[in-house]
Design a protein around this nucleic acid. Structure first.
Ligand SMILES: Nc1ncnc2c1ncn2[C@@H]1O[C@H](COP(=O)(O)OP(=O)(O)OP(=O)(O)O)[C@@H](O)[C@H]1O
Length: 747
DNA sequence: ATACTTTATGTTTTT
DNA sequence: CATAAAGTAT
């Protein structure tokens, strides 16, 4: 302790310089693993402790909710106390919170719904229908992309129309779409940002208020901000000028959804007095990995030249594996995992990255067979599953009765006799009378042509909604969710058909209910029940894939490269390194997109601390026929001396770790006590005859197993029930020992 | 008129 | 492989 401040003790001189700058705008630009996030965290602590800033005056933006939680914790750790009134969140969450209070100025109600992509697509489809346009000719998704792009650049539909040269269809859809959103009091993801910026522009008092509240604005992962996000922080900071951003343009990987590296230039223009700090020392990776990363990124025209260095030893060479077929590629990974486990690594030290979600299957299967615990981060997001969305739609309608997209979704789900024609009548009525869908339903009796049966259905719907609302008001969100699951008939619908899949659906609903009850218990605010529900739904809409990673699970993490941004692992596998997959074929023709793919690869390899593996598959099976594959051009960009090649025709037995290692069996630690909806496939390594436990059915014995991977199911005999049941394997937990001790542990 | 069944269509990355 | 619109059975 050199008399230096404890806060900056564990920082190098450059980092320290950034953290302790007296005031004014600061931009930290630095390569991967140079401690940008650490600097930002220390900066917050420094502001609060050394500069006397109130925590409530801090707005810190992170890329994911999970990163926000961690940052809040770390700041608390540095300060030695918890800091609650500091705002640490993603752009979208922060905007949602602001808009709940302020959006009434634009005619939205504070209970507005937040639409995810599929909700938006549904609404676009409706708009197309109402405009008499053919939804099959113009893809709703494509339209949504255009509209989203416009919104990210803060182009409203009038401006959009002005700029349109050819057919005005897109502009018309945009106009109607936006009009409907407002009528329904709903916002899509882009609205959260755009409306906030517009509000700040249109109502000076509101902007001034938030400028006053957030005296200090900090942004992590600045390279992936879009224009709306930039304007937001610029507006907030333009008076007090306490804006602190950190980023690395070589890690910009979200241009496809509007991220704009020119925000670095805009910052320079708008904050010319800014101090710029460069960090060059990498603390994360071995020099072998770092050299490879530097080489790769230097192939980009638009690379940001850096002198990243580290004083770590060379470390192990990068292993490049060639395999034939997805199965063998996956087996290489699982064998390596097993070998590294015997070398002392823990499952949680390792991660597998792929370019597309669809690639995860083979690796799940291989890890399952090798009895290594793993978790799939993200994929097939929980809240996007049909059965879950149905329940959420009921809650959305309770929270915001004008939410037409949610209402339309549940109107005849489960079936209650309101069919195509009744819906048609209703729709015509609603558009003729220019009323909301809700009002149309309330006045169903006035609509000619609607059958008695359908009327009864409408009645039923109203009753069930009332019931959910009553439960909400008396007992909270958890009970309301339960009501939306059981009183609606969605529970029966979930169990109805498809034996095995039905179990999975029911499990998802049970999980949703659990999450809702947990939400109740963690809510400290004394909010009105409808506002509580709003918060719950908001949280549900804004979760991201990486939020579901559980570092404590002791499981190999499988995720897309995008999800891996900002993380680090001692051992990394980047799989599917073929031209056409990574870089993706849809990026090959456009040089800018290709460079983004290369940045993505740069992000992937810079996640690894010690051991990096890159694998490619020389024959992909498509429809039962082998298609030859070409190794990724990115592999050639890594200097040969850093690489060890394994596998391939010359090495028919894939290089390492093929030895049968029975010791690996010891490593499976079931990830118990999960507290969110993350989809952990408990790596039970369950076999016929094993004893397993199900959350509600108790302990049973496995009779048969069928299916693979996440879909594996088992027939299990439960002595307590004196019956056997077909269950998803992921729904049970293997009981390790045979003694009663094993059965007494519970989650 | 509704509910069930079949067929077509579109599959990168995501807040 | 999943969803959604069109076609068929009840
Ligand atoms: N001064 C330091 N001393 C020791 N370790 C450090 C120091 N600075 C950073 N680190 C470590 O280096 C690693 C990378 O830090 P951090 O995640 O903050 O970097 P980053 O620049 O945000 O990375 P990336 O942009 O790649 O996500 C972390 O494990 C961090 O603890």
């Amino acid at each position: 302790m050199i008399g230096a401040h404890p806060l900056v003790e564990d920082l190098n001189p450059e980092q320290k310089a950034a953290v302790t700058i007296a005031g004014g705008p600061v931009m930290v630009v630095a390569g991967a693993g140079s401690g940008k996030t650490r600097v930002l965290t220390h900066r917050i602590a420094y502001l609060i402790r050394e500069m006397g800033v109130r925590p409530g005056a801090v707005l810190a933006i992170t890329f994911t909710n999970k990163a926000a939680r961690e940052m809040r914790e770390r700041v608390g750790g540095l300060l030695g106390s918890t800091v609650n009134d500091m705002w640490v969140s993603t752009f979208h969450s922060a905007c949602a919170r602001i808009l709940r209070r302020e959006a009434h100025a634009f005619g939205y109600r504070s209970n507005f719904s937040i639409y995810d992509r599929s909700d938006s697509v549904r609404l676009i489809r409706q708009c197309l229908n109402d405009l008499g346009l053919d939804a099959s000719r113009r893809s709703p998704r494509g339209l949504l992309n255009k509209i989203s792009e416009a919104k990210n650049g803060l182009v409203d539909y009038e401006t959009f129309l002005d700029r349109t040269e050819g057919p005005v269809e897109v502009a018309e859809v945009y106009r109607l779409y936006q009009q409907r959103l407002l009528q329904m009091s709903a916002m899509d993801f882009d609205d959260l940002l755009m409306v906030t910026v517009e509000l700040f522009g249109a109502v000076p008092e509101v902007l001034e208020r938030y400028q006053g509240i957030f005296g200090h604005v900090l942004v992590d992962e600045y390279q992936d901000t879009n224009q709306a996000q930039y304007l937001l922080v610029r507006d907030l900071a333009k008076r007090h000028r306490s804006l602190f951003v950190v980023g690395d343009s070589d890690q910009s990987i979200y241009a496809f959804r509007g991220a704009d590296y020119r925000n670095f230039d805009r910052f320079d223009e708008d904050f010319p007095e800014a101090r710029r700090v460069i960090l060059n020392r990498n603390y994360r990776s071995t020099s072998t990995i770092l050299d490879a990363a530097n080489e790769v990124i230097s192939a980009n025209q638009r690379a940001d030249p850096k002198d990243l260095w580290c004083d770590q030893h060379d470390g192990e060479q990068i292993i490049v594996h060639r395999g034939s077929g997805a199965v063998r590629e996956a087996r290489f990974v699982s064998n390596r995992v097993r070998q590294l486990l015997t070398e002392g690594y823990n499952p949680g030290d390792m991660a597998v990255f792929y370019r597309t979600n669809a690639q995860s299957r083979a690796f799940e299967e291989a890890l399952r067979r090798s009895k290594a615990p793993y978790q799939v981060v993200g994929a097939a997001a929980f809240y996007q599953r049909r059965e879950v969305k149905d329940v959420v739609a009921y809650l959305q309608v309770v929270a915001n009765p004008d939410d037409g997209v949610a209402l339309r979704r549940i109107i005849n789900t489960p079936r209650r006799g309101i069919g195509r024609t009744s819906l048609g009548h209703l729709e015509r009525f609603v558009s003729a009378e220019e009323v909301s869908l809700r009002e149309g339903l309330e006045r169903a009796d006035e609509i000619p042509g609607i059958s008695t049966r359908a009327r009864r259905g409408v009645q039923q719907l109203a009753e069930v909604l009332a019931s959910i609302k009553a439960h909400l008001e008396s007992d909270g969100v958890g009970r309301a969710t339960e009501s939306a699951i059981f009183d609606t008939g969605l529970a029966e619908m979930a169990t109805a058909e498809g034996g095995i899949e039905a179990e999975g659906r029911s499990d998802n609903l049970a999980e949703l209910s659990r999450v809702a009850y947990e939400f109740d218990s963690t809510l400290e605010d004394d909010l009105a029940s409808l506002e509580q529900l709003g918060r719950f739904l908001e949280g549900a809409s804004l979760v991201s894939d990486p939020d579901n990673l559980d570092e404590g699970a002791g499981a190999v993490a499988l995720m897309t490269v995008h999800s891996a941004k900002g993380l680090e692992f001692p051992v990394v596998f980047v799989v599917g390194m073929q031209d056409g997959l990574f870089p993706h074929e849809r990026s090959l023709s456009d040089p800018d997109q290709l460079e983004e793919e290369r940045r993505l690869f740069y992000v992937a390899i810079t996640r690894s601390m010690e051991r990096l593996h890159l694998s490619w598959d020389d024959t992909r099976m498509v429809g039962g026929y082998p298609y030859p594959q070409v190794p990724s051009r990115f592999l050639r960009e890594i200097p040969e001396q850093l690489v060890e090649h394994v596998g391939g025709p010359e090495h028919p037995r894939s290089a390492k770790g093929t030895a049968r290692g029975s010791s690996a069996g010891r490593h499976h630690a079931p990830a118990g006590g999960d507290r969110s909806f993350r989809r952990i496939v408990r790596q039970s390594g369950v076999e016929v005859g094993d004893r397993v436990r199900h959350a509600t059915l108790g302990v049973g014995r496995v009779l048969t197993i069928s299916g693979h991977g996440a879909r594996a199911s088992a027939s299990i005999f439960f002595p307590g029930l004196k019956a056997k049941r077909e269950l998803m394997l992921s729904a049970v937990e293997k009981l390790d020992g045979f003694g009663p001790g094993a059965a007494s542990r519970s989650g």
